[in-house]
Write a protein that binds this DNA or RNA. Structure first.
Lengths: 186, 186
DNA sequence: GTCTATAACGAGATAGAC
DNA sequence: GTCTATCTCGTTATAGAC
């Protein structure tokens, strides 16, 4: 049940933000009463902390899987971008981006976990970009970590705008451009 | 008074999102009672529509000013980026980005105005990039409109992440990289 | 245009029975 | 672990006096 609650709540946060859903929404979805939810997560902050933790674990698991599935840094980067594309197709934003936009309204105890999530993304991207650059697969114009931050920012923003403008095609073109600009020409 | 309300509400949306403030917050700030606000904006949706309209007007005015102040497309682009930097310094997000993250929870009648705001940004950026490219000041790897969308997405995402990670330095490096990647290399 | 007063609702949360 | 019942608070919104 705890797992069902987390699955439901995660979807709600990704689609509506942390202030955009209530215990009543979750209760309807998982089929128990509001009050019963408080047995699993006494406060909404407790739920939020568990969500960030679970989401970061999902990310790390996904990144590990990419590392095991692809040797080529370019393919790894494309697989990373595909995660965002899959999210868009499901009508979901990145939970990190949604919580970031709610940063001033949520309990501050959630912020370290949120920062950790972004750090996870940046560290992994930095490593992939650095390896690709040293293998002359990529041709970075700046440091690997600067490119990593730029990629993360661009993907978060592209996801946000694409959902609102309902333009998946534009998302696709943006991410293609991001990748080709990193790949060594000719 | 209507103007004071809009100023207050705009700041609140940019910092806390459309669901992150109430009429009580505005009332405290402008010094009238909650009920009096409904005389100026009967519903919160009415307020939201007025905010989007005012914000788009501010954008257009700002873009016009940039066009009048700088002839060089590179300087125009830097001035555009500086708008986001100024927002970050004020602890504010772009209102467009905030409303986009709230897209599924706000009254759908606000969505056309929100899409129009993004279209405004993309059209202006596309024009600046196209001119700079034809003047051989820029060296675009893709179409001007694709680069425009990418820039907008990257700036929105960078703003969001920089506020959460409290890393203005990272925002600065990201935007520098975005601009240098567009400029024709020495 | 602004006020007091209040309605109507939904939110997060608690108590205690089963 | 789940339930019913309830509490308290904040929210948007309205009625009607001044």
């Amino acid at each position: 049940m705890r797992e069902q609650i987390l699955v439901s709540a995660q979807r709600l946060v990704q689609q509506r933000g942390f202030n955009g859903f209530s215990y009543a929404d979750i209760a309807d979805e998982v089929g128990i009463r509001k009050a019963s939810l408080h047995h699993h997560f006494p406060t909404k902050t407790d739920l939020g902390l568990a969500l960030i933790d679970a989401y970061t674990t999902q990310l790390q698991s996904g990144l590990r899987h990419i590392g095991e599935s692809f040797n080529n840094p370019a393919d790894q980067l494309r697989a990373y971008v595909a995660i965002y594309r899959g999210s868009l197709d499901a009508g979901r934003m990145c939970m990190g981006g949604m919580l970031a936009s709610d940063a001033l309204t949520i309990d501050p105890v959630m912020l370290p976990g949120l920062k950790g999530f972004f750090a996870c993304n940046i560290e992994w991207l930095t490593e992939v970009l650095a390896v690709g650059n040293s293998q002359r697969i990529f041709a970075l114009s700046g440091s690997a970590s600067d490119h990593a931050r730029m990629l993360l920012a661009a993907l978060q923003g592209a996801l946000l705008i694409a959902r609102t403008t309902e333009d998946i095609e534009a998302f696709e073109r943006t991410t293609s451009l991001l990748i080709t600009d990193i790949l060594r020409k000719g």
